[in-house]
Amino acid sequence: MAVNLKRSSGEDSDGGKTSRRRMLGWLTGVGLFGSAGLSAVSNFVFIKPRATYGQPQRFSVGKPEDFPEGTRSVLGARGICIVREGTKLAAISTTCTHLGCTVASAETGFACPCHGSRFDPDGNVTGGPAPRPLPWFQVTLAPNGEIEVDKDIEITPGSYLTL
């Protein structure tokens, strides 16, 4: 087997043939790479789920009587802590704003076991790498008398629902 290294010559450099061939080459290239790029993108579209089946973000947590005055109850499965002070009620997130571990309640508020972030009872950062305070979620009283928390709606920390 031998390889011929003579350049295959097209027509003269100004001739119509060469430029047409070039043009066709370009079109083919754009077509091929374009479709390759498009299919690459569509792979990502494919693996991005359109619907997720996680927990509902809006749920009821029980009657106000379930949370006696002056208590703080961590609802682990919901990722919130219900704070009751007198007639006021609030829901503070227990998901660390650093990297998503679940914080535990501590004497000084909340503490995260993963990288040592600490929060005061209102969720403000008092130490560690957490960049933001723990968010507060909207709490409403449903017509049937149950407390409803909506984790999609964050409210200003310190604003309580007054019963």
């Binding site: 031998a2 390889v3 011929n4 290294l5 003579k6």
Partner: peptide, 13 residues
């Protein structure tokens, strides 16, 4: 250095 007029066996490449 490949001169255009010659042909080479694959080994040469």
């Amino acid at each position: 250095v490949l001169e255009p007029k010659k042909t080479y066996g694959l080994q040469g490449l």
